[in-house]
Structures are given as structure tokens and as C-alpha cells.
Write a protein that binds this DNA or RNA. Structure first.
Lengths: 165, 165
DNA sequence: AGGTTATAGTTTGATATCAAACTATGTGCC
DNA sequence: GGCACATAGTTTGATATCAAACTATAACCT
């Protein structure tokens, strides 16, 4: 029960060179949600990252593009909240999307501080490919979680994001 | 049902300056495990980060110190696997822990490439404080998840970390 | 109108992370 | 022994992120 991820075993060598495998002891980490949440997220993110790189987009682009497409005219600050990251992290991302012609950005007339973001036609094409790719990823995750627990699992994830102070 | 996290609402201003709140539309992100996993993890991590900073340690130090304490003599590569990160990420972390006297590092005689890591007495004291802090964090998460679902939730997280390709 | 305070976005500086190249050491095979 | 390959750890370069300081604009109050 101590083995958690592939390759986390310890290997020792005895006097005659024979290999002695020892399991890593995780102690309290074994049952702590925070640690296991991090591990699951990082593995899943890495997997998706590899997938999305095949079509030449970083994994972070995906949520950003979807949110702009679904909320035409959204501002960068609104986007950063929806996306759960600081607005300053978004500056280079949006810049890149605009530079590559996937997103367009207009100053609002009413409030000249804020921009309105919209996905271009090219952006929609890219988003379609990214979405297909994300669906494949989701199918893998669904297979691991199992239909029976999926809904409850999602609810709990949302609850954590919303309520952890 | 579209509202997911605090502060993600959109605000528009009408002609007379009245505020019009619109919910953000998450589209497919709403039901995708990958996105929600990321959001939950990031919120939880941020919360723990604030907590652990109060005692002057980054959040990443905690798992690292625990793993060394529970597996005396562990090598850096083994540690990086157990911790789910690249061995190169560990170099500065271990360096810092050694410099501050929390961890000690000895070359192995049998294999002069590898180090053995051990927690010092001072490291144990720090770990005790960190563990208390982590337990408080876990209590909050447990409260959000609820006793009934906690075990299953943990199992699924482990399954994801282990099986996602 | 003019001063104060708030907000949208950018810049800057710090941290964490990975991946690939690199160094030093160890193992296997002839 | 000596060459080819493997492994432990470090270095380097790229990316993503946050937080705080900053700029420009807007809103609010008297």
C-alpha cells in the first residue's frame, strides 16, 4: 500500500551486488488530500501537456481560448478570475494569442482602461483542434475514475476550489 | 450553475451606469476533470502556501522534508520520483535545506555518485511545526470533502497519479 | 472643477518547474 | 585493462506563475 507512483521504489545494493528493492515510505503524506491532489494534478497536467504540444499549443492556452470563445468581449481581469490566475500572468498569454492572430483585442469606448477579447476565425479553428485533444484526455481520465464516481468527484473538486479559503 | 469560484462574475455597465452582473460561461470546462482538478489543486496549494509561509517555509519544502525523514539515507533521484518532480528541480531545494542545517548529505562509499540524505535535529523540529500546519490545512480540506467521501476521493486521486500515462 | 480613491492592464523581480546537455562515476563485456 | 553504455547529480535555458509597484483612466465626493 505504500507504493504510489511508478518508479518511486528505492533500490539498494547488498555486499554481493544483489539488488534489494525497498518501498518508499510516505508517512502521513499517504493519506493527505493536499499531497495527493498535487500529485494527481501534476500527472494529469503533464499528460495533457504532451498531447497539446503535438498540435503546437501550450496546455494553458486551452482554458484561456475556451473562456474567451464562450464569453465574447470578456476583459482580461474577468478572464484571469475565471481562469484562477493572477491578471499579470495573463499579459504574456494574451499578447501571444493576439500576435498569432487567434484572439483580437479592442479598447472599450465606454471605459478606455479595459480591453474586450474575442476569438478570431483562426482562433476558432485552433480551439476545435484543442477541444478534440482535450476530449481524448478526458476519456482517459474518465476511464480511470469510473462512471460511477465521476459526478461526485467533480463536485468535490469544485467545492474545494470554491471553499478553500 | 455556471458560477464556479468566487469573484468570477462579469460586470457590465449600462447606459446609466447601473451595474449588470453576468455569470461567466465555462462551456465544456464546467464538466472536465482536468480543468477542475487544476483549479482545486491551485486553490488548495495557495491556501497551504500562505499557512506555511507564516513559519517561514515554502510549501514544497514540506513533502521533501517528510520524505527524507521517513526514508533516512534516501538519494536525490529516489526523492525526486517519490515527490513526482524532476531530479533537477530538487538540486536547489536540497541545497537550501542543507545550507540552513535542516538536512545533511553524505556521499555513499559504495557508489560515489549518489548522496544519502538525512534530516538533522533542527530539521526534525522544523518538520514538527510544518506537520502541525499541514494537519490544520487537512482539517479544512476534510471539512469541505466530508468524511463520507474522503476515502474514495483519495483513492481516485492516487489512481489518477498512478495510471494517467 | 479638483482631489481622492478605485480599477484595468503592464512591468518587474522572485520562485518553481521541466527538459536537455553536461560531469563524474559505475557496470558490463571483450 | 579498456571501450561502450548507464546512472546520479548539476547546470543551463525556457516557461509559468505570483505579488507588488507602476501607469493610465475612471468614479466619487465636496
Amino acid at each position: 500500500m505504500a507504493r504510489m507512483t511508478n518508479g518511486s521504489g528505492r533500490v539498494r545494493r547488498g555486499k554481493k551486488g544483489e539488488t534489494i528493492a525497498e518501498a518508499i515510505r510516505f508517512g502521513p503524506l499517504e493519506t493527505w488530500v493536499g499531497f495527493n491532489l498535487r500529485m494527481a494534478q501534476e500527472h494529469a497536467f503533464q499528460a495533457f501537456s504532451r498531447r497539446s504540444q503535438e498540435i503546437g499549443e501550450g496546455p494553458g492556452r486551452f482554458a484561456t481560448l475556451t473562456l474567451i470563445a464562450r464569453n465574447p468581449g470578456i476583459s482580461q481581469t474577468e478572464l484571469s478570475h475565471a481562469n484562477g490566475r493572477d491578471k499579470s500572468s495573463l499579459t504574456p498569454v494574451v499578447e501571444d494569442l493576439v500576435r498569432r492572430g487567434l484572439v483580437e483585442r479592442k479598447r472599450m469606448r465606454a471605459d478606455r482602461r479595459t480591453y474586450r477579447l474575442n476569438v478570431t476565425a483562426a482562433g476558432k479553428q485552433t480551439l476545435t483542434m484543442l477541444t478534440r485533444c482535450a476530449r481524448r484526455h478526458e476519456r482517459v481520465l474518465d476511464g480511470i475514475i469510473g462512471q460511477r464516481d465521476r459526478k461526485r468527484f467533480l463536485q468535490i473538486l469544485k467545492k474545494i476550489a470554491a471553499e478553500v479559503e
